[in-house]
């Protein structure tokens, strides 16, 4: 396509070749006219006109386009259920993008037990770390300052009273609020990563305040090099 365009451009720019252009453009005009006529015919195929049982061809697997000039089914979303589905993970050409810490919890040993008792709970629709949770924050901060090699993953969770993506942001906000509190207590923010599960990973499956209160939480996972 590009080469044709370049060729046309070249010929148009060169005066002595005008005859050549005409010879070239004439068939193009004919082709264009033919296209307009055929499109016009299609356009004339009005949905509201009385028609004597015309056929409509619907493309699909194993049903190739017939040779006859029948009106075409519009296919807003052509899809072949026998092809294309599958997952082949392709690395990004520029390498893994966007990792903003130089460590990743996936590559480390994750210890959920050590700080399990220090789980922090939140009020409804709030990411404020309340006063009576400060003891848990202090305990986590003390642990982190005593174990210089340890990194920390904070998981933020919500109850079911919020839409999915809203809660994914709220859960992240809760984890970030805990990171902030730990940072104030002396833990370097670079040692902490946050992970929001929104309402996708409830601790309790009930649909009452007791379950909801348990689900609005931040959990601390200690990460150590393998």
């Amino acid at each position: 396509m590009i080469s044709i365009l370049t060729f046309l451009n070249d010929t148009l720019l060169t005066k002595p070749k005008i005859m050549k252009i005409n010879r070239l453009i004439f068939p193009l005009v004919i082709a264009l006219a033919a296209m307009i006529v055929s499109t016009g015919c299609k356009h004339g195929y009005s949905k509201t006109t009385e028609l004597k049982n015309p056929q409509r061809y619907i493309p699909g697997p194993g049903n190739e386009r017939p040779e006859t000039q029948q009106p075409q089914m519009p296919t807003p979303m052509p899809y072949d259920p026998n092809a294309g589905v599958g997952v082949v993970n392709v690395p990004h050409p520029e390498g893994p993008i966007g990792t903003t810490t130089n460590w990743n919890p996936v590559d480390m040993n994750q210890d959920r037990a050590t700080l399990a008792a220090n789980m922090v709970h939140f009020k409804f629709d709030s990411s404020v770390v309340v006063d009576n949770e400060q003891a848990n924050v202090s305990a986590v901060a003390a642990f982190m300052s005593g174990d210089a090699a340890a990194k920390l993953l904070i998981e933020g969770h919500c109850d079911e009273r919020g839409t999915e993506e809203y809660n994914r942001s709220l859960g992240e906000r809760r984890a970030l609020a805990l990171r902030e509190a730990l940072n104030k207590a002396g833990v370097n923010a670079d040692r902490i990563r946050t992970l929001s599960f929104g309402k996708d990973k409830p601790a309790e499956f009930g649909h009452d305040e007791a379950a909801w209160a348990k689900n609005r939480r931040g959990e601390f996972v200690v990460c150590r090099p393998k």
Binding site: Y79, G84, V85, G86, V87, V88, N89, V90, P91, H92, P96, I97, G98, T99, T100, T101, R168, S169, E172, A175, L176, R193, T194, L195, S196
Partner: peptide
Amino acid sequence: SLASGQRRTIASYSGL
């Protein structure tokens, strides 16, 4: 891409 079955991450920053 459902046509090729290939996928890749376009955002995998720390956090959400």
